[in-house]
Simulated scan of single mutants.
Amino acid sequence: MTGTTAGLTVHAPDGVPEVAAGDDLAALLVPLLDLADGDLLVVTSKVVSKAEGRVVTGDREAWIDAETVRPVAVRGATRIVRNRLGLTMAAAGVDASNVAAGSVVLLPLDPDASARRLRAGVAARAAVNVGVIVTDTAGRPWREGQTDIAIGAAGVTVLESFAGRVDAHGNPLAVTAPAVADQVAGAAELAQGKLAARPCAVVRGRPDLVLPPGEDGPGAAALIRADGGDMFGLGAREAVVAAVAGRPEDRLPFGAPASAGDLATALARTGTPATVVGDDEVRCAAGTRVAVAIVAFAHGWEIHEGAADLSIRPVTP
């Protein structure tokens, strides 16, 4: 199946055999592909995991627990978690589809390393310089449905910087770093399909994204925000519960301490007038301690006792 748009072509070949632990992916894929310098080879994480022996038996829920660093949100049977790779995904990326009953597929131990090995294997067998992207499927906040994203990459520019550039009207570009590796992953998925047994695709037309031989780049890990750096580190319900509980170990998903002005504004919205004393202190009436403690926790601050009022100060990282 091939799709073409604005000079970009995507080809996903049929005939890829079932992959088993220990298989050499480069040896399996190169004979099926017409590769050229500057191509992007996109492979699903599932075939990478199968080749690396990441198919395991046992209870899926137990494996989700094992792959989870912390929960983000739970709605019924659906668990959104931050997994050991730093990815925020449903079920930690543990997949029970297209595998024998009683088995599940775990994500590769190090998808960027997997991409580097495949890139080197392709170069050795086909004498071409390609970029490699390892993909998996993920949902998106605010949007229905799922799409493929890059979870591993080698020899690829994963973020295309537009910092300092302007549009045709002289306006600064608001989006300074398009996630081009994710865009390539989504384009490849259109040709691969979900049920067509096409676990790889070649995307041609963006040789500018492929790094020179010997340069693998930062990998797809560069696309992951640090825990606490995202505005949505917890689900809405989970954030309320965490703020009320006020456990120190639950501070990280709320991010860095907010400014004194932002905290004072938030307190005012709860009916608690507050005064900004300085960059590192906000004061309010002592009679509102419980509400203040909850709001302060969610903003990275904490209460310090005062004589007739509450002194609130940012938590030291």
Results as ranks from 00 to 15, higher is better:
residue 257 P to R: 03
residue 154 A to G: 12
residue 193 G to A: 01
residue 99 V to T: 15
residue 224 I to G: 07
residue 274 A to W: 05
residue 283 R to N: 11
residue 148 D to S: 12
residue 252 L to N: 01
residue 209 L to N: 01
residue 10 V to E: 00
residue 236 A to S: 14
residue 28 L to T: 04
residue 44 T to M: 03
residue 28 L to P: 03
residue 164 G to Y: 10
residue 175 V to R: 14
residue 283 R to P: 08
residue 108 P to F: 12
residue 64 I to Y: 01
residue 227 D to L: 11
residue 2 T to H: 08
residue 255 G to K: 00
residue 272 T to F: 02
residue 277 V to A: 10
residue 258 A to R: 11
residue 91 A to V: 04
residue 21 A to V: 09
residue 270 T to H: 10
residue 22 G to F: 06
residue 122 V to S: 08
residue 273 P to W: 07
residue 311 S to G: 15
residue 9 T to H: 07
residue 187 A to Q: 12
residue 13 P to T: 13
residue 251 R to W: 07
residue 256 A to H: 05
residue 246 G to E: 03
residue 21 A to P: 01
residue 274 A to I: 09
residue 179 A to N: 09
residue 289 R to D: 00
residue 180 V to K: 06
residue 24 D to V: 07
residue 196 A to I: 06
residue 44 T to V: 02
residue 103 S to C: 15
residue 121 G to P: 01
residue 181 A to Y: 00
residue 67 E to R: 12
residue 314 P to Y: 07
residue 96 A to D: 15
residue 195 L to Y: 13
residue 38 G to N: 00
residue 38 G to I: 02
residue 25 L to S: 04
residue 19 V to C: 09
residue 245 A to G: 03
residue 137 T to Q: 10
residue 62 A to F: 03
residue 157 T to G: 01
residue 59 D to P: 06
residue 170 G to T: 03
residue 310 L to C: 08
residue 146 Q to N: 11
residue 243 A to P: 01
residue 269 R to N: 06
residue 84 R to P: 01
residue 138 A to E: 05
residue 34 D to M: 05
residue 154 A to W: 09
residue 1 M to I: 09
residue 93 G to E: 01
residue 268 A to V: 01
residue 85 L to K: 00
residue 191 A to F: 00
residue 316 T to A: 15
residue 90 A to C: 06
residue 263 L to G: 04
residue 76 G to W: 09
residue 165 R to W: 14
residue 228 G to T: 02
residue 36 A to M: 04
residue 13 P to K: 11
residue 67 E to A: 14
residue 31 P to V: 01
residue 204 R to N: 11
residue 187 A to P: 03
residue 216 D to Y: 03
residue 80 I to G: 02
residue 224 I to R: 15
residue 275 T to F: 13
residue 8 L to R: 09
residue 34 D to V: 02
residue 149 I to E: 04
residue 194 K to V: 14
residue 34 D to K: 00
residue 279 D to E: 11
residue 94 V to S: 02
residue 196 A to N: 13
